[in-house]
Design a protein around this nucleic acid. Structure first.
Length: 551
RNA sequence: GCGGUCGUAGCUCAAUUGGAUAGAGCAACAGGCUACGAACUUGUAGGUUGGGGGUUCGAGUCCCUCCGACCGCACCA
């Protein structure tokens, strides 16, 4: 019995024997429709030019040649060239072995061998000027799921969050908290126009009054604002970290931008670029030659007055990221697409072209019923991530956000989300898991012998029913799916896969009774159930979603 | 005005990056439990993939051009 990779190698060899000049790549994938077969390859299309033949004829010749090999015939039950594709039906033993593999490997099933590639993922990062909002929910879900999937696929992943605590918005935050504090003593005290008007600073002001009393009324205003900015920043960052943790997202590093400043990293970064010759002086300012990488115009790095711009922070921070990773991925909102060229310019300057990769996560339009909500913090009207967690729960929220591909804008209707949360496909998947758990609980009472045999992976050769084999086939997709999620940075495929496994299980459950009078059948089906439960649980874990034993 | 992203079933979204007959869920309609969980399942209906051109064996996917939505166009962050 060959593995899928070995089978692909056999077919590639057959093709190479027929057309020695060609360099055929054979990859077996699930066909578009199950009726075509178990796996398929489109290798014939790629050979059409070299062979100067119709893909269908090429496919036929490859099939004939490959079937000369008895080991191929031992694995393949049926090989059909159709419309240029080569469709294979594999023998039941092939799928039985998949189930055995899952039972043997358990939670490690589908793990990729270490790729040796170190990847930095930065996602979710927000200004420390207010609570996390729905948009971050989307980025956190997608970023964290990608991180988990990439780790499973064998990448060495480092996750980080940048705290933007070095710019002028911190001053605005300080003045905002100062105003909230003063308002506790004098409700008429004016709130700054460019301040952060949400209510979330009021509890912090109250805490401040409790702790320090009137202290800040008597301090100099500038001194008070500077101190309060620091206090507000710390409070808000702590709250953001707590909400992220509740959302089951853990970071390897929360990097403070201010710390980079204080450590002199900004100056060092600029000096490094100057040495690399990509900076120049004009109008008293220092510019980055980003047009070399296709940017519309060059960008200022150091202002006329000597203060570094935001880009200078990025220069320093991204250099640090480059030190700990081969590949650096940033999740950015669509309003940041202008960054891509600037990062390209940096990567080129550092001699690591293409090392920076940007994933644009499209906008979320927020609705409450028919009313479209602005998400600007300055407008003070925000739906926080905590609010969403409270309303629909972490499982439903994470699964919902991961389901959508990043390049699709999303309309999030909070009312609808609440109303439809019971329709969330996450419950369909979780139900599948709980249903299996229930069967296994029952088996412990009535079929203890078969259950322990099944756990040891015995008796799987009794699996033959189409529904059983279809389910096993789906389990075999797990590894390739995770690898594809990692490679294409497409975590939404994981939720799609979870639904497919659950669907295949429910169909199997409908067609085949697990606990029967026939010991062999029961053992085989229990083994399939345990394997399915493992794959469902692992898939859900990669999505950051619970796999419940009961619901 | 210039640049970017997007437009797929009534609704929310897929389509493994140029491959087969564009698929799921929800909503609608018609069926299925005296056996392991009906939060399940079987089926029906629903499409000129925004419009039009082009590239090739083959286009939802690539190119051009209109239409529409959103986002950028700071010595802000």
């Amino acid at each position: 019995m060959l593995t899928l990779d070995e089978l692909a190698a056999r077919f590639a060899a057959a093709a190479r024997a027929l057309w020695p000049d060609a360099d055929p790549v054979v990859q077996f994938e699930a066909p578009r429709h199950a009726q075509f077969g178990d796996v398929a390859t489109n290798v014939a299309f790629g050979l059409a030019r070299v062979a100067r033949k119709k893909p269908q004829d090429i496919a036929s010749e490859i099939v004939a040649r490959a079937l000369d090999d008895p080991t191929v015939r031992a694995t393949v039950a049926e090989a059909t060239p159709l419309a240029g594709f080569i469709n294979l039906r594999l023998r039941p033993e092939f799928w039985q072995r998949v189930v055995a593999d899952v039972l043997r490997e358990g939670v490690a099933y589908g793990k990729g061998a270490p790729t040796g590639e170190r990847v930095s993922l930065e996602f979710g990062s927000a200004n420390p000027t207010g609570p996390l909002v729905v948009v971050q929910g989307r980025t956190l879900s997608i970023g964290d799921t990608l991180a988990r999937a990439m780790r499973h696929a064998g990448y060495d992943v480092f996750t980080e969050w940048i705290i933007n605590d070095a710019g002028s918005q911190i001053d605005a935050l300080g003045r905002s908290l100062y105003a909230r504090y003063r308002q506790l003593f004098d409700p008429a005290y004016p709130f700054p126009e460019d301040g952060y008007p949400g209510d979330y600073l009021i509890p912090i002001a109250e805490k401040l009054r409790e702790r320090d009393g009137e202290k800040w009324l008597h301090a100099g205003e500038n001194e008070a604002i500077a101190q309060l900015a620091k206090i507000a920043r710390d409070e808000i960052v702590a709250e953001q970290q707590e909400v992220a943790r509740r959302f089951r997202v853990e970071y390897d590093l929360w990097q403070s931008e201010k710390e980079l400043h204080d450590a002199g990293a900004i100056e060092q970064g600029i000096a490094r670029l100057r040495d690399l010759g990509v900076l120049y002086e004009k109008d008293g300012a220092t510019w980055l030659r980003s047009t070399d990488a296709g940017d519309d115009e060059d960008r200022v790095v150091v202002r006329k007055d000597g203060r570094p711009t935001y880009l200078a922070n990025d220069i320093a921070y991204h250099y640090e990221k480059l030190q700990r990773a081969d590949h650096v991925v940033d999740f950015l909102g669509p309003d940041h697409h202008g960054y891509i060229k600037r990062l390209d310019a940096l990567a080129n300057a550092y001699g690591r072209p293409g090392a920076f990769e940007v994933i644009l996560v499209q906008q979320i339009t927020l609705k409450r019923g028919d009313e479209i909500l602005s998400m600007s913090k300055r407008a003070g009207q925000l739906v926080t991530l905590q609010e969403v967690i409270d309303e629909v729960g972490v499982d439903a929220a994470r699964f919902f956000f991961v389901m959508l591909s990043t390049d699709q804008p999303l309309t999030f209707d909070l009312e609808l989300a609440k109303k439809q949360s019971s329709d969330n496909p996450v419950y369909y998947v979780q139900y599948g898991h709980a249903r299996i758990a229930s069967v296994l609980r029952k088996a412990r009472e009535s079929h203890a012998g078969q259950l322990s045999a099944a756990q040891r992976g015995e008796g799987l050769d009794a699996l033959a029913d189409p529904a059983e084999l279809a389910l096993a086939r789906r389990l075999a997709d797990f590894g390739p799916t995770v690898a594809g999620v990692a490679r294409a940075r497409a975590p939404h495929r994981l939720t799609k896969y979870a639904r497919e496994v659950a669907s295949e299980f429910h169909q199997f459950y409908d067609a085949c009774r697990v606990l029967t009078d026939d010991a062999a059948t029961t053992t085989a089906r229990l083994g399939l159930c345990i394997a399915t439960k493992t794959v469902l649980a692992t898939t859900l874990r990669l999505c950051g979603v619970d796999a419940p034993e009961t619901m």
